[in-house]
């Protein structure tokens, strides 16, 4: 059974400047078809100038984050018929500089991750580069951070966060979650340094637990939980 669904897609051409506009496309939809399939249909059959970023089409790579009907989601992870709407509005993610149409520049996210040193810190560099033994972890030690390793860096949480929208200096959910992922890792030795980095005006204190990050995460990672746990560590000093 084929249904017609109207895609209302945000269009923006940097060379034209301005605010951008919405353009409507009618797309025949079958059961199982995703938003990304619809966008690719538009690009192949109706309007080849539409820009959309995607890669794996199976919610692994985190490239195709968009806002569908005002809610952040991966375009490849959302089936059109499940939305039960005749008109579907597709917009680029918020809080990022816009490149073109649905493509956003994710640089702020990665820059903030780097600022929070989201990698394993060891005091002994020689041992870290050429380890002489295995560094085993117990099941409990693994559980403390395992959930946060599921992050695919799609940046949906960063787009949903109301604080990043209003106060762009805030580190945002994903970088802070990543910082906690390493803070909670038993192999990591950056403890105090990490707390010092997030204990700033732009750090954990700007999170007001609006939970939008966790609500939109397609992988079940819970950035809001990680930030609260990070804040607890910062409060303990």
């Amino acid at each position: 059974m084929v249904e017609k669904v109207k895609f209302k897609v945000f269009r923006y051409r940097p060379e034209d400047g301005g605010k951008g506009f919405y353009k409507e496309y009618e797309v025949p939809v079958k059961k199982g078809m995703t938003i990304l399939d619809g966008l690719i249909y538009i690009k192949e059959n109706i309007d080849p100038t539409l820009s959309v970023r995607y890669s794996c089409r199976m919610a692994i790579c985190g490239s195709c984050g968009v806002r569908v009907n005002s809610l952040e989601t991966l375009a490849c992870h959302t089936q059109v018929l499940e939305l039960k709407r005749r008109v579907i509005r597709v917009e680029p993610m918020r809080n990022y500089p816009l490149v073109k149409d649905l493509v956003t520049d994710m640089t702020p996210l990665f820059r903030k991750q780097k600022a929070l040193m989201t990698w394993l810190i060891r005091q002994d560099n020689v041992e870290q580069e050429n380890p002489t033994k295995q560094y085993l972890q117990s099941e409990e030690e693994l559980e403390r951070y395992l959930q946060f390793t599921y992050c695919i860096q799609c940046g949906l949480c960063y787009s949903a966060c109301p604080v990043v929208s209003t106060f762009p200096d805030f580190y945002g959910p994903q970088p802070l979650m990543k910082a906690y992922r390493y803070y909670a890792d038993s192999r990591d030795e950056g403890g105090e340094e990490r707390v010092r980095l997030v204990d700033r005006f732009e750090g954990v204190w700007r999170c007001h637990f609006a939970g939008s990050c966790s609500a939109v995460c397609p992988k079940g990672v819970d950035p809001a939980l990680a930030i609260q746990l990070l804040r607890r560590s910062a409060l303990k000093g």
Partner: peptide, 13 residues
């Protein structure tokens, strides 16, 4: 924190 499961709400909620 726990392993994410489909359709289960985040632990912070």
């Amino acid at each position: 924190p726990r392993r994410p499961e489909p359709f289960s709400p985040p632990p912070s909620f």
